[in-house]
Write a protein that binds this DNA or RNA. Structure first.
Lengths: 244, 244
DNA sequence: TCAAAAGTGTTGACTTTACACCCATGA
DNA sequence: TCATGGGTGTAAAGTCAACACTTTTGA
């Protein structure tokens, strides 16, 4: 075939481009948790001199033999001990000067975990939960990554049953509403909230009540099994997204 | 300071991680165009033996000294000759086996350009517009990338005035509606569409009429200057995105 | 005079918001 | 008996979907 003259094998292409194999890739995980009516994010003290005293997200370089999700799950597992977490890719960040070590492009993921019910191995490393509201500055461009991930979470929250990853298995509607308020940053009307949630048909009433509350106990609910997805929900196919 | 003992400089970190600097990064551009009431995408014949006969998106490796947007604009400029185009990052794709040359992680962008008014230098390279509807298979994972970008475009389309990048400066409401239909893949009601567009207040009536149409000519409009953004619209801040 | 699309409003269904009272529990 | 939140419904406003006729132009 004459056309083959213009074709090159992948191997040849690789050799001719070897110069370019010197950008590193990392993933950074914005790990959200929820406690004390407050949205938190898991941060670690930066171990780079350049960022001494600042906190950063949990991230690591991607190994040549693992894909992006695998790398994110590895980080979560290494740092928190958890492996059944919700994870969703958000965006790549690739400015030239974002990392002082050289060229590192990072893929940001956000992750949702239930602080209370999973005992994390937090003490060994300098890992702590920080209230999202109070975070002003982080190492690298991590503040921007955090803001972007939070916006994405806010967008997801009413369409998809994702926030349940932040709650214990059984929860009351008050707890759920407080969580929504913490994520969205504004208050919701109780009656309207309950109506809306009940229309979604995400929950089953398990016929149990709260205990140890200093007021009338509320009913407890569980997320229906069919909505318990642990990994990134791919956006729906080409059904009507908008109405015109 | 004693703490400095545990800190390392970025330079040291770089050296200790040199092994990892052997993943390549590319950007791939899904370049949408619109013509003949049909949404098109710009594809090139793959020059890899492994994908002989298949088309692929326009992409290239990211150079160590350019950021992701710069790389995308470079590709657009090199391949189409255009530099004032709308560009938006969509997602990273990083499966281990997505590229036969080795480990290449790609960041997908979509881009919107007006086929008619920009004369592209298409003939030299094997570059052609393909109707999105008819594309079944592409080289690499490019079909998946295309699908993801199309879904993203569909989501953007009613919220943000982006589709105007696909149209000439002056256009009629019929042309605009046909474009929406091509992107969304279903038909729209004319009266409701016009009402909705007029509420958005994106357009100015320029007091001109269509010419050379074989029927009653419609009014022509322009996009208002304040909406002419050429690059990725960052999603709005923390205002109410959803109602609960 | 025909064909094609322009231009234009109303109604009913549905969704969203705002809002208040009595109840159950623990302290 | 008090404080706290649980649990519930309705009315008004706004949004969405469906739908048809007259007008203007070129062929």
């Amino acid at each position: 075939m004459s056309k083959a003259l213009n074709l090159k094998t992948a191997e040849i292409e690789k050799i001719s481009h070897l110069d370019y194999f010197n950008i590193a890739i990392s993933v950074d995980c914005v790990i959200f948790g929820y406690d004390d009516k407050d949205l938190k994010v898991l941060l670690i003290k930066s171990d780079l001199e350049e960022f001494e005293g600042l906190y950063s997200l949990l991230g690591d370089l991607v190994r040549p033999d693992e894909d992006l999700e695998t790398a994110s799950y590895r980080i979560l597992k290494e740092r928190t001990g958890l492996d059944d977490v919700y994870l969703e890719q958000v965006q790549a960040f690739g400015s030239l000067d974002r990392h002082p070590s050289g060229r590192v492009i990072t893929i940001a993921y956000y992750s949702l975990i239930d602080i209370r019910n999973h005992k994390l191995k937090l003490e060994n490393n300098e890992l702590h939960w920080h209230s999202v509201k109070t975070i002003k500055k982080l190492a690298f461009d991590h503040k921007m990554i955090l803001d972007t991930c939070l916006m994405r979470l806010q967008q997801q929250v009413m369409e998809n049953p994702v926030v349940f990853n932040l709650l214990p298995e059984k929860f009351s509607l008050r707890e759920l509403q407080e969580l929504y308020e913490a994520i969205l940053g504004y208050e919701l009307d109780r009656r309207n909230f309950r109506k809306k949630i009940s229309i979604k048909d995400w929950l089953t009433d398990i016929n149990e009540m709260e205990t140890d509350v200093p007021h009338r106990p509320g009913k407890l609910y569980k997320l229906k099994a069919e909505h318990r997805k642990r990994s990134g929900v791919r956006r729906n196919t080409v059904t009507r997204v908008v109405s015109v």
